[in-house]
Simulated assay, not measured.
Amino acid sequence: MEDINVSELVETYLIPWGTNIIFALLIYFIGKIVVKMLVNVFGKVLGRSKYDDMLIDFLKSIVHAVLMLFVIIAALNELGVNTTSMVAILGAAGLAIGLSLQGSLQNFASGVMLLVFRPFTRGNFIEAGGTAGVVKDITIFNTIMTTGDNKEVIVPNGAIYGGNIINYSAKETRRVDMVVGISYDADLKKAKEVLIEMVNADERILKEPAPTVAVAELADNSVNFVVRPWVKSADYWAVKFDFTEAVKLRFDQENIGIPYPQMDVHLHKVED
């Protein structure tokens, strides 16, 4: 009697379930190998393009997750699990999670757009999301920047992609905009000649486009020149700081007065 029951148990449950489990495991492990091969091929195809490495890794992870989901569903289906209801449950759960994480999804979508269109890359000096700094890394949800005083700032991608992005490193050259004021008593022509001479003497300043030195404004306390030379982007701050210092030293040497804000007070004596 016990032999019959054991035999029926083996034939009814153990063999069918064992067979299903073996096939499910085969589907899973073989599918995992196939998915890995397909993802590698997908990555090599994208690698021949000009897409950012981070975008390629992200797309590979998405493709891998989607394909593995199909493999797992196929394996569970082999075990007799009702995958139709499971897919419906997963869809409802995904919708609920999506509604609760709208801000994160916006950052996620913005991160994808930043990686696809690449308005900036690692190492660029940008101004975006209320912060200016050198881009250290671009992740799916955030962009990490390092400020000039070496502070690390993590900015949500949604704040960056949803606003203006100023990329100071996008072009090879930049124009340095400086204002130099002289007193009304100073020799205007001499001051202009000195400024032009200083611009031409600096080897870091480009000849083309030609620099601009011109009188821009007759202000309250000074006559203001605009000095606008073109330089390589890497030389921008060095030229700006060096030229500003050099102007003060040279104007002192040439006795060209640089005014500062002042107020004349006149006292009138009132006789009783």
Rank of each mutant, 00 (worst) to 15 (best):
S85C: 00
S85R: 09
V87F: 10
A88M: 13
A88P: 05
A88I: 15
A88F: 15
I89H: 09
L90M: 14
L90S: 13
L90W: 13
A92Q: 00
A92H: 00
A92L: 12
L95Y: 08
A96P: 12
L99C: 04
S100M: 15
S100P: 01
L101I: 06
L101G: 06
G103S: 14
G103E: 11
S104N: 08
L105M: 10
L105P: 04
Q106V: 05
Q106W: 02
N107A: 01
N107R: 04
F108Q: 04
F108Y: 14
A109I: 02
A109S: 12
G111S: 02
M113H: 11
V116I: 13
F117W: 02
R118P: 04
R118Q: 15
F120E: 05
F120Q: 06
T121P: 02
R122F: 01
N124D: 15
F125S: 10
F125M: 14
I126G: 00
I126P: 07
E127Y: 04
E127V: 04
G129R: 00
G129D: 06
G129T: 00
G130D: 05
G130F: 04
T131A: 14
T131R: 12
T131M: 10
A132M: 07
V134T: 11
V135N: 11
V135F: 08
K136A: 10
D137P: 05
D137F: 00
I138H: 03
I138M: 03
I140K: 07
I140L: 14
N142A: 03
N142D: 09
N142H: 06
I144T: 13
I144K: 08
I144M: 08
M145I: 12
M145W: 11
M145L: 15
T147E: 09
T147G: 13
D149I: 05
N150F: 07
K151Q: 15
K151V: 15
E152D: 13
E152V: 15
V153F: 05
V153P: 01
V155W: 02
V155C: 04
P156R: 03
P156C: 02
N157D: 01
I160D: 03
I160G: 08
G162K: 14
G163I: 02
G163S: 15
N164D: 06
N164H: 01
I165F: 06
Y168M: 07
Y168K: 06
Y168G: 07
A170R: 04
A170S: 06
K171E: 10
T173K: 08
R174H: 14
R174W: 07
R175H: 04
D177F: 03
D177H: 09
D177V: 08
M178D: 12
V180D: 01
G181P: 12
G181A: 12
G181Y: 09
I182Y: 05
I182C: 02
S183Y: 13
S183G: 15
Y184G: 08
A186C: 08
A186Q: 08
A186D: 14
L188D: 03
L188W: 05
K189S: 14
K189Q: 13
K189W: 10
K190H: 14
K192P: 01
E193P: 10
E193A: 15
V194P: 00
V194A: 11
L195K: 07
I196F: 07
E197P: 11
E197H: 12
V199K: 07
V199P: 06
A201W: 08
A201K: 14
D202V: 00
E203A: 07
E203C: 01
R204I: 14
R204M: 12
I205P: 06
L206G: 02
